[in-house]
Design a protein around this nucleic acid. Structure first.
Lengths: 343, 343
DNA sequence: TTGAAAGCGTTACCAG
DNA sequence: CTGGTAACGCTTTCAA
């Protein structure tokens, strides 16, 4: 016997559907006796309320939609964890979708979420070219959206992320202060802001110290481990070894390690690696890597909190929230620090 | 202007709601001209269909509910990835919930998912005592459920997992064949089957080789990194160092490493570590750890596929699907293998 | 204290 | 080809 509805309970009890509805939600204009009869039968029949039928009237679904490029990137796994945590606390259910870094899947996912009438959207865009159209549609729908980690600017939506440019500058400056000069950069795609900004921060750090930016020390690609491996090999083909490789993220750093193992290059003795990452992940690889990290859980939680504000107060002005990043030094620099003079 | 509905389009066009509905879904009893007028206005008004209102009739929501203990365990992150992949392919949306290893949250989550009328459920139970009641409720609701990774037996639901006992036996036997005899086991909680089974497999391996099981070489706890750290320290207090530590999972193994670092014990030179893990995760830590692993993506995909079968053919008999596990040898054993004679 | 009726957004069926 | 009406499961308002 599939799930029963209120009508069947009403029929069995020979009362109206309205009475059953009210009894089940403990309305105070229903007698205790009736409430008990209804509840007992509901229990016996294994009655389970119909979430969406109820929400059909209330215009609120108590759900939020989340779009991430890939849940198997541990960064997003942790971010989603932070989101789920904050969502749970405020009584929201989460519809999770994954875009696999594809704009068209992302588009479809957002459309589905809108059609599910989620009360709000949390989106980390894919790294392909952003399609403004779908976000225009979201704006028109008046369903609040907050970008997290990866955002699309100029659309008037709030976003929560880190100041990649400044963080990258600080990280590279940290390396320079250790006395290293030959710093390669395996950048991600510059099609997405995190890629562009981290690369820009790398440039900033060099420029401020009057060091020329060498194009042949930089390579672009994607953000995967394989991209990191390819990137290292490409730069390696161009010339001598660097002191330090700066990876745009942790996957790229792992890929660089892979390449070095393949090429017989010892790390951290010969080449140090620094990268963007986050503590939970870096802890596994540590202590070999020096990272600049942001807590992805915190980022998710902040994003959810900002979204809640937008949902509760529709008029709220959009904000760009920046989570501070922290440098965590690993052996890859400590060890080499001894063999190179500081400045 | 919030999202418009079909009625507003109908009113604007001075046609009936039925006509609009049919035009929008390209029914063949509507003229092309009318279809165009409807579609154009829908576009202009930013019409977005109402997922749940449609599904109210069709009795299918094209959604499945997933319950995991914690998405920040990379194992579950990958498993969810596999689920999302298979779900996307078959046109299902995923409602993800996290129980934080708490039975009462798990219960609430399942209840919410039932009330959302998901077409099916994929559940990895929390490690606390299982509450049969809620699953009894699921059974009565006739909504198909498949357990993955962690299951509750005797309820008639299908499950997808690994044969932990056999896998643990093989892993420990592998270590024994390398010539090691002093093997500690930092077990997880025996409140859950994976904990019990892995511990049993550890015992099997020893017994089959006529080695006595020493209770003081085994400790129980949870499955976190901290549990692993605590476990190692506890066993360490009881006596001399082991040859190898067998961790019930990778977090525990990391915790054992933590403890050894704190205690000044060198690994893998002094103590080797073997554990249950999965390749994606172990690759990060490798090559120091020897693992027995199962592909969590595959597990998720298989679970989804099995669920699809149950959803499509309601009568299907329940099955216990076992994903094979594979041993991947790391340096922790290779290196020590040289200093100990084989058998 | 209970119930009748309208409505939430959509689809299905049948008439015209 | 188009439209009226009922139905999906539930809530809410207003009468009784």
């Amino acid at each position: 016997m599939p799930i029963v509805n209120q009508a069947q309970i009403a029929r069995s009890l020979k009362v109206s559907r309205a009475t059953v509805s009210k009894a089940l939600k403990d309305a105070d204009d229903i007698s205790e006796g009736m409430k008990k009869r209804v509840r007992d039968l509901a229990e016996k029949f294994n009655y389970i309320p119909h979430y969406h039928a109820s929400n059909l009237q209330s215009k609120r679904t108590k759900t939020i939609g989340v779009v991430v490029p890939d849940i198997s990137y541990s960064f997003f796994a942790f971010a989603v964890d932070g989101i789920m945590d904050a969502a749970q606390r405020s009584g929201y259910q989460v519809i999770l979708t994954v875009s696999r870094e594809k704009v068209d899947i992302e588009r479809k996912n957002i459309l589905t979420l809108l059609s599910m009438r989620v009360d709000g959207l949390l989106v980390a865009v894919s790294k392909e070219t952003r399609n403004i159209q779908i976000f225009e549609k979201v704006r028109r729908s008046e369903i609040p959206l907050v970008f997290f980690d990866r955002s699309v600017g100029g659309l008037g939506f709030s976003s929560v992320g880190i100041d990649d440019r400044e963080a990258a500058r600080r990280l590279v400056d940290f390396v320079l202060r250790k006395g290293y000069r030959r710093i390669w950069h395996i950048a991600g795609s510059s099609g997405i802001d995190i890629g562009r900004n981290r690369r820009a921060g790398y440039g900033d750090a060099l420029t401020r110290r009057g060091i020329r930016i060498r194009k042949d020390w930089i390579t672009e690609g994607g953000f995967t481990r394989e991209d990191g491996r390819r990137g290292f090999r490409e730069l390696h083909r161009r010339g001598a070894l660097p002191d330090v490789v700066f990876g745009a993220n942790d996957q790229i750093a792992l890929g660089a390690y892979d390449a070095m193992r393949e090429l017989g290059i010892r790390y951290p003795e010969q080449v140090g690696v620094v990268a963007f990452s986050h503590r939970e992940y870096a802890n596994i690889m540590s202590p070999s890597l020096t990272i600049i990290h942001v807590d992805p859980c915190l980022l998710g939680r902040k994003a959810m909190e900002l979204l809640l504000r937008h949902m509760d107060h529709p008029g709220t002005r959009s904000r760009r929230l920046r989570i501070p990043a922290e440098i965590e030094e690993g052996e890859s620099l400590l060890k080499r620090g001894d063999s190179v003079q500081g400045d």
